[in-house]
Write a protein that binds this DNA or RNA. Structure first.
Length: 175
DNA sequence: CAGACGGCCAGTTTACATCA
DNA sequence: TTGATGTAAACTGGCCGTCT
């Protein structure tokens, strides 16, 4: 009775005993042949392994190990490519975000200017009395439409509150 | 069902090639 | 010539499926 690990060790000792060859680099020709075979199919059926081994004068295990390592290299390369692709996409998104933030700043400035303009007009018409009709009626459509509750809320707002309120509506995340 | 075995994978070690 | 470094070949242990 042997543990899994012991069984494996015995198997490998048997394998190792077959030959005590030193580690040698495969020749260019052998590698070229293996690469061609790898392009055909990434995994080795046992018949193919024996055929390749005979063809190249290698041990079947060497062929198996080469394919294992080759699959690992292939996987690493693919991961690297995926990483680079995602990195480029991320950079593009960051630039896009930056543009959008600038656009938000620009629009905020425009909004302030518009409010200033409205206030001036209001002064000239009402003598400085900014009535509830201004905010609730004149800007309502551009803010996407308010319900009854919001309209009631708007009626009691001063300018500062109104500004904050509209910013909440147009920019709920405070960008 | 248990055990042997082979294949695969991820991680590691080892031998060799290259370069400063 | 030598030590550092990179890389390919080989090894290890774990897991899984198949066979007997």
């Amino acid at each position: 009775m042997f543990s899994v690990s012991e069984t494996r060790t015995r198997r490998r000792c048997r394998r190792k005993a077959n030959g005590d060859a030193k580690k040698r680099r495969l020749s260019d020709e052998q590698v070229r042949f293996l690469e061609m075979s790898f392009r055909d199919e990434r995994k080795l059926a046992s018949g193919r392994k024996a055929h390749l081994a005979a063809e190249l004068g290698l041990d079947g295990n060497q062929v198996a190990v080469w394919f294992q390592n080759r699959r690992a290299r292939h996987k690493n390369k693919q991961l690297e490519e995926t990483y680079l692709k995602l990195k480029l996409e991320h950079e593009a998104v960051v630039i896009d975000k930056c543009h959008l933030e600038n656009e938000v700043l620009r629009l905020k400035e425009k909004l302030l200017e518009a409010e200033e303009e409205i206030r001036k007009l209001s002064w000239s018409v009402n003598g400085g009395n900014l009535g509830s009709s201004f905010s609730a009626v004149s800007l309502q459509p551009t803010l996407g439409g308010f319900g009854m509750e919001e309209e009631a809320e708007l009626a009691y707002m001063d300018e500062y509150d109104f500004y904050n309120y509209t910013m909440e509506w147009t920019n709920p995340y405070g960008m």
